[in-house]
Nucleic acid binder design. Structure first.
Length: 552
RNA sequence: UGGGCUAUGGCCAAGUGGUUAAGGCAUCGGACUUUGACUCCGACAUCGGUGGUUCGAAUCCACCUAGCCCAGCCA
């Protein structure tokens, strides 16, 4: 999977255009509206636009499509820039649609002067009523045949703020009977007073998406304007504006299928509600697939690239299971993450034949297959912690490859130990396991006389660092009605907090995902500080171990 | 008989008339293993349906079926 990348139709189109010398290099763009947060689904558009441009020596623009001041905020601009930069999709240029307001106004005036646009005084309700519906054509606005001179005067008046919000609009004069609703004299400009994050109060008219977007692309010299499927029937309009506004550069809009992830929340309204109700811990809750959530969780951006490329860029609209994403994360981290020992459900082991008060230091590589990652000292001593699940009093069958009374296992990077006895409390809960170790079996000594009953990991008790561990599972339950209110679908067990121990010299860096040997990948959370180390579980390790029912 | 689009194994997805229909995930066997991980072997589809064109079709044509999008002064 690592090197797999699906070929896709847009790549074919670009290569053809380059071969035919239609363009020297491709120029693409990611055009978000700064009104929310980016999520995994957006990553497809970001990564694809970026990589397509870069792979063919072209340019990638980041452009904020800020044509609606009432929904947009500079806060979102900064958040999106941070997310995109984190992804490593560096933009060659940063633009704002609002930078083009003057040009757009002038081009709209071109339309007016050509008789291709008119000022319409119909109320919003009247416009809706005269638009017709899916089966019936619309009817012409009574203002449709205004003279060019009057239209020029009124449009200038709109710009000067002479009319109230919503009093008039500028409309393209196309065809009220078109079977394509988008062509029924679409609105180009509306009057809307509101403070714009970029242009302040300089404008009281704002261009609509269908008009603004093609002009933005043309102005920037975008060659391939990628967007999602729902804009497919806007394409005739896109082309109409480029043509009649007499734009020099002719961009081509190409639609692809959005990346949908099954059983995940991506809607702004929904997330906001969950945040406000305290069901999740902010927009960057690690259970969310917002880019900030994934980053906080510890997902490396390279894994996101790998995931996007493995899926390709189809024209059909599928729904991908999140487990495929987790698999990609594992795949990437398996190759690159440092390995370290930690215990998330500890039980004490006492090595009865090891001197009291004494410890020694062993050396362990951070990654068995990548020596460039180096190694760290691992303390070993009389008292250790191992996973409670790695011990059972009586070995149930030959498949049990862990510790049991009378069985000998290898402690990874240390010695073989053999269990002899257990100490239990009043409830019968095991408090300690008494073992002996064999000095001759030291890791790296080449000892090969006996085969242990498996290999488990440990942390030496006196040097162990207590840590808080946040275990995440899918936020939404799978076995409930997907149409039920989201609040009722939340799995209260999707976040569990436990306390365990981390080996002494792990030196985890903030944001770095590393492997807790045999357990999974974990990363230090932003809530962490020097006193309290808090880690998030990024993903579990795969396991082919299938305990029989009733057996651990 | 409004328009536009899509349909390939449990999931994702190549394929644009001509070998046994790529590949990934998942699954099931097996090998290896100082992570029951990784790695490695092996198994796993006649392409929504029907009819047609053709020596030959997932690829062309016709009809049918299913799903998605469009009636914001949102993007």
């Amino acid at each position: 999977m690592r090197t797999m990348e699906n070929r896709h139709f847009i790549r074919t189109i670009i290569e053809e255009d380059l071969r035919n010398k239609k363009h020297d290099v491709p120029v693409t763009r990611f055009p978000p509206e700064p009104n929310g947060f980016l999520h995994l689904g957006h990553a497809r558009a970001i990564v694809m636009n970026h990589s397509l441009a870069k792979e063919y020596g072209g340019r990638f623009h980041l452009r904020f499509d800020d044509t609606n001041p009432v929904t947009e905020d500079a806060l979102f601009v900064e958040g999106m820039k941070a997310d995109i930069a984190w992804l490593g999709c560096h933009w060659d240029a940063l633009y704002f649609a609002s930078d083009y307001f003057e040009t757009m106004y002038q081009r709209a005036m071109v339309l007016v002067k050509k008789g291709k646009a008119y000022v319409c005084d119909l109320t919003p309700e009247a416009i809706k009523e005269t638009r017709g519906d899916l089966k019936n054509p619309g009817e012409n606005s009574p203002y449709r045949e205004r003279s060019i001179a009057e239209n020029v005067r009124l449009f200038e008046g709109m710009r000067r703020g002479e009319y109230a919000d919503g009093a008039r609009v500028l409309r393209a004069k196309i065809d009220m009977a078109s079977p394509n609703m988008n062509m029924r004299d679409p609105i180009i400009y509306r009057i809307q007073r509101g403070h714009h994050h970029n242009t302040g109060d300089a404008w009281c008219i704002y261009p609509m998406y269908d008009f603004a977007h093609p002009l933005e692309d043309a102005i920037e010299g975008i060659t391939h304007s990628l967007c999602s499927l729902e804009f497919e029937d806007h394409r005739p309009l896109y082309d109409w504006f480029v043509k009649h506004c007499e734009m020099e550069n002719i961009p081509r809009q190409i639609e692809f299928g959005k990346l949908l992830i099954a059983n995940q929340i991506t809607g702004k309204r929904h997330i906001r509600r969950l945040v406000e109700a305290g069901h999740v811990d902010g927009w960057d809750d690690p259970r969310l697939i917002t880019l900030s959530g994934l980053r906080r969780r510890g997902v490396p951006p390279q894994a996101i690239h790998q995931f996007i490329k493995a899926l390709g860029l189809p024209k059909s609209q599928g729904e991908t299971d999140i487990t495929m994403f987790y698999e990609t994360v594992r795949d990437y981290l398996g190759l690159h993450a440092r390995r370290v020992h930690a215990i998330i459900n500890p039980v004490k082991v006492v090595i009865t034949n090891y001197p009291e008060g004494q410890t020694e230091t062993l050396d362990a590589p951070f990654h068995r297959d990548d020596e460039t990652l180096g190694s760290r000292p691992v303390p070993f001593g009389r008292e250790l912690y191992i996973e409670r699940d790695d011990f059972i009093e009586h070995k149930p069958n030959k498949k049990w490859k862990r510790l049991a009374l009378g069985e000998e296992v290898r402690l990874m990077h240390a010695y073989f130990i053999k269990a002899h006895d257990v100490i239990k409390d009043d409830q019968g809960i095991i408090q300690a396991i008494h073992c002996t170790y064999d000095k001759a079996t030291r890791s790296g000594s080449g000892f090969n006389d006996r085969k242990p009953n498996g290999t488990i990991h440990f942390v030496e008790a006196s040097h162990a660092t207590p840590i808080e561990i946040r275990l995440f599972d899918e936020l939404l339950k799978r076995d409930v009605d997907p149409d039920a209110p989201i609040e009722t679908r939340i799995d209260p067990q999707s976040k569990r907090v436990v306390h365990g121990y981390l080996e002494a010299h792990a030196t985890p860096h903030q944001g770095e995902a590393f492997q807790f040997t045999r357990l999974g990948y974990f990363a230090v959370d932003k809530d962490s500080d020097d006193q309290n180390i808090i880690v998030n579980r990024v993903v579990e390790l795969k396991s082919s171990y299938k305990p029989k029912p009733g057996q651990k």
